[in-house]
Design a protein around this nucleic acid. Sequence first.
DNA 1: TTAGTGATATCC
DNA 2: GATATCACTAAA
Length: 169
Amino acid sequence: MKLGRSFFERDALEVAPDLVGKTLVSALPGGAERRLIISETEAYRGEEDTACHAHRGRTRRTEPLYMSGGHFYIYLCYGIHWLLNAVTGPRDLPQGVLIRACRGFGGPGKLTKQLGIDGCFNGMAVDECPGLWFEDEGRSVNIITAPRVGIAYASPEDRERPWRFIEGK
DNA sequence: TTAGTGATATCC
DNA sequence: GATATCACTAAA
């Protein structure tokens, strides 16, 4: 069953662990579908979170984060890698969940490459996007939490927050 | 460990 | 205008 916007209109800290075990589906050119099971996510939570892109306020890049939950936020990192986020929470509260990995794929940049994701999905609604969506296949998994990675610039307390969610066994 | 890559933010 | 930064990856 396809996940609707209401799934994402909750706090990022609820959505991020819920997303682990869900299926990410992309429609490739030519009609094929690629289905991947999400195995790792991270929550970014508002202007108060110094690791969140929005912590310096609203800019053109972070604009999608301020939309209501249920939209994609996709941006180019290091000039090479598209990173996929799902926007969560109410409108005007910049929260999001970074999809870090799926089963069989080790990193956020690899994921988007594998799924053929690029900036053209940025800002699209998850339930109105013809090429990319989430599905709930009734899978339940154990979750392991850990500190987020790659955010050395954040404040010490934000660096330590256990807002990374990994599929356990 | 380090080079590569380019959009974005921030500073003149 | 310029330059510093960056939620990464692959090669060595």
